[in-house]
Amino acid sequence: MNGSSSDRATLSRRVVLQGIATIAVAGVAGLRFDLTGAFAAANDAYPEDAFRQKSEADAIKALYGKTAEASDKVRLDAPEIAENGAVVPVSVSSSLPDVTSIAILVPANPNTLAAAYRILPGTTAMVANRLKMAKTGNVIAVVEAGGKLYSAAKEVKVTIGGCGG
């Protein structure tokens, strides 16, 4: 990041605004200042902090406040060899009941978390998107179901990196 002063100003203003929103929500919910993670039900803000994390564990913790266990009920579709790291089709679905969220992480990228989706009541536990990958590595899908976290991983070989100029 080249972090010009105006960028910083915008960013800090947003963080402040978000802070106010979080406090307001927390206030209504009865001052729950425990570490429930950005995706806790009462919190509707963009999980800025989770998107800044470098490691998989930190990103999952920042997002959900807990850890995930591997599960074959999380289905992750991604190509074996990406045609171009700039556009890697990735889809995630799950047969688990009560899915409330799906997150996709790419630990080989500068920031691990790529996307986080809220699966609202009535919405199918499935999402497809296209992601950038800097280099060969795992794609990790995390599914939140019934308050617990489940994950699956798949290696994608990247021969043409998705972060070049």
């Binding site: 190509p79 074996e80 060899i81 990406a82 045609e83 556009v87 089709p89 497809a128 296209r130």
Partner: peptide, 10 residues
């Protein structure tokens, strides 16, 4: 084949 599938998806 691998490229073909990614193309179809696109």
């Amino acid at each position: 084949e691998g490229l073909y599938r990614q193309w179809k998806e696109k």
